[in-house]
């Protein structure tokens, strides 16, 4: 089986989501080509070529591909699709945006957010916020799949795939990029962090969130997450939301602070190796999934934790 894997990158860096999706791809077939679509994306292509299990890297560079706009990117993937049995992407905001467009243009169903490859045409995927796992068999001859990366280990380096240039498709000219407001931080990214500390509605304000959560995160070298309630209230930026409709994470250690444990939040973190919950309500549902629960006021417990580390 020949597989096309869409790389997730920002031209300069290949995100480790790609290495994780690659692991899923190699379970489906052995001939995996990685597509790096962008502008000035040589660095990302070089990184993709080094991943073990990649047999070829395709690079398409064009101004229309610089910002991952769905229409030109989908057109490119469709143009390349003839040679492949399956087309995969990590379920990042780019993958979720473009892959269903590709699937519809190819008239195939998409299998969203697979967590396991059972066989080359059969996959497991969560439904109902992860409260049920479906095993589905695709009957389409060409498969379009997104991969929940928290469920797959990253492929290692050690490859040396050839890099081939391909041309972009004609830009349908339906949309244009206006600007980005991306959060920059020295902290690890949520989806690749080994430790995550998350805050909920209990934090009460953006100032308190910063004052209480961030020092502990810094001590631990942790990424910072948040519940929807904390994001909606403006205590934390949208890209920190963990959950059914936010990011799905599975770090070694997840520390939930002042988060009640709604099913939509659990959906994004219950596969973490070790879960710690700090909540002043001993009945909070988060304690039902926590390995270690501390019934305490987080405004006292977290400064204490910061000192103890």
């Amino acid at each position: 089986m020949a597989i096309l894997l869409l790389a997730d990158h920002d031209n300069a860096h290949l995100s480790d989501q790609t290495a994780k999706a690659l692991t899923a791809a190699t379970k489906i077939g052995s001939d995996v080509h990685v597509l790096v679509a962008g502008a000035g994306a040589k660095a990302a292509a070089d990184q993709a070529a080094k991943l073990a299990g990649v047999s070829k890297v395709l690079v398409a560079e064009d101004a229309s591909l610089e910002n991952n706009l769905a229409e030109p990117l989908a057109a490119l993937i469709v143009q390349l699709s003839g040679a492949y049995d399956a087309i995969l992407a990590a379920a990042t905001s780019v993958g979720k945006n473009v892959m269903p467009r590709v699937a519809a243009l190819l008239d195939v169903a998409q299998v969203s957010e697979i967590v396991e490859v059972v066989s080359p045409d059969t996959f497991k995927r969560p439904i109902y916020a992860g409260n049920a796992i479906q095993t589905v068999q695709s009957t389409d001859t060409k498969k379009v799949i997104t991969v929940r990366t928290a469920s797959f280990a990253a492929a290692s380096e050690g490859g040396s795939a050839a890099i081939e240039t391909v041309s972009a498709a004609a830009d349908p000219g339906l949309s244009s990029h206006v600007g980005d407001a991306l959060s920059s931080s020295d902290r690890p990214e949520l989806t690749s962090a080994k430790i995550i500390i998350s805050g909920g509605r209990a934090l009460g304000s953006a100032e308190k969130f910063k004052e209480v959560i961030l020092p502990v995160a810094d001590k631990l070298g942790a990424a910072v997450g948040a519940s929807r309630a904390a994001v909606d209230a403006g205590y934390a930026p949208n890209d920190w939301q963990v959950g059914q409709t936010g990011k799905v994470v599975a770090p070694q250690l997840y520390i939930a602070c002042g988060i009640s444990g709604a099913i939509q939040h659990l959906a994004g973190m219950k596969d973490s190796k070790v879960i710690v919950a700090i909540n002043k309500d001993e009945e909070a549902p988060i304690f039902q999934v926590a390995d270690y629960g501390l019934v305490a006021d987080l405004f006292e417990a977290l400064p204490e934790l910061e000192k103890a580390l």
Partner: peptide, 14 residues
Amino acid sequence: TREVDGGLQTIEVK
């Protein structure tokens, strides 16, 4: 204005 993995992206659509 779109919620993306790294923050927000603004695009214009026809």
